[in-house]
Amino acid sequence: MRGPRCTVERLDQPSAYFNSRNKRRRFDKDQRDGDDDTNMQNDQPEEDPLKDAATLYVGNLSFYTTEEQVYELFSKCGEIKRLVMGLDRFTKTPCGFCFVEYYTHQDALDCMKYVGGTKLDERIIRTDLDPGFTEGRQYGRGKSGGQVRDEYREDFDEGRGGIGRALQARMRAGSRDRAGSRDYDEDYGRGK
């Protein structure tokens, strides 16, 4: 990739989330492919889907953070080509994530290094390289229409609608519900 391993970790690498998803996919493929020798050959030309990525997933935004605020902060890494706010499926209001697309891969990497993990609207935000937004792409959103992480959250987060919506619903209904079928995996699920 970039020569020898650095003596300190790089902040512009894709997150464990992206890697684990990819690895799993690759692993499945390897299993099907059969013996080790062919794997070695197949592994080499594998195209890194993020090698030119100019888009970032931005998470842990407050529901009240506006596009203008995102613009103001993220423009410090380069001109923004496109900004797509993640909206609640039903209410069409921001549900705490967005995609920022730059003109260049370098700007996106710089953003990983300099913006990810800093505050916007007084919340620590998260950035992750993303292969890019395509029209019609849907994101893993829970039953209530927002991100899955906001379904079962047990802490009270004022910026993200209080406690998890599923819990709220359960409290409203006053009925015991089992929280068994959690589906954390679909937090901003890709390509579904």
């Binding site: 410090k76 890494c77 380069g78 710089d110 290094k113 300099y114 913006v115 800093t118």
Partner: peptide, 12 residues
């Protein structure tokens, strides 16, 4: 050498 925001982030 780097974008100004890098130096912001170091101070942060």
């Amino acid at each position: 050498e780097h974008k100004l925001i890098y130096y912001h982030s170091v101070l942060t």
